[in-house]
Amino acid sequence: MSSMLVQRPYLLKAFFNWIVDSECTPHIIVDATQPCVEVPEQFVEDGKIVLNIAPRSVMQFSMDDDAVAFNARFSGQPMQVYVPLYAIEGIYARENGAGTMFPEEPAYQALDKEVQPEKEVEVAEKPIAKNRAGLKIVK
C-alpha cells in the first residue's frame, strides 16, 4: 500500500486562495501550545490564537509545506510570526465563517519530535539571511 502525503498543506493553500479570491479575510486557528510556534503570547487564550493572514494585513508572508510565516503588528508592536502547519487547526473567512477544520494526521504526530528541533534552527537562520540581503541592497 502506498502512503499518501499529508493533506494539510494542500487544504490550507486551497482554502486560503478560495477565501482571498472571494474577497474575504482569511483567519487561521492556531494551537499555540505546540513546539516552535512563535505568536504574540498576550493574545493566546486557552492555548489558542486566531490570526488574520490576509495579504493586506501582513508583510513578508510565506506559506509552504512546513509553515506559515509573516511579519505583523500587534498592539502597534512589530512581530515575526512563525506557525508550523501541524499547529494550524483550521482556516475560515472572517466575514461568513466559511472554511474548514483540519483532521488529525498521524504523519504530523510521528514527525513531531523529529522535525521540531530542526525548525528551531531554520527560524533562527531566516532573519540572518534577510539581514545579509538587506546589507547588499544598501551598498
Rank of each mutant, 00 (worst) to 15 (best):
S2E: 13
S3T: 07
S3N: 09
S3P: 00
M4E: 15
M4Y: 10
V6N: 04
V6I: 02
V6R: 13
Q7D: 05
P9K: 09
P9W: 09
Y10S: 08
Y10I: 12
Y10G: 02
L11F: 12
L11E: 10
A14Q: 14
F15I: 03
F15E: 12
N17S: 11
W18Y: 07
W18V: 01
I19S: 09
V20M: 11
D21Q: 13
S22H: 10
S22A: 15
E23T: 04
E23S: 09
C24Q: 15
C24V: 01
T25Q: 08
P26N: 05
H27N: 05
I28Q: 00
I28W: 00
I29L: 11
I29Q: 05
V30G: 07
V30T: 09
A32G: 06
Q34T: 02
P35Y: 02
P35I: 03
P35F: 02
V37Y: 06
V39I: 04
V39T: 10
V39N: 03
E41I: 12
E41V: 12
E41N: 10
F43Q: 11
V44D: 03
V44I: 13
E45I: 10
D46R: 15
D46I: 02
K48H: 09
I49A: 07
I49Y: 03
N52E: 03
R56D: 13
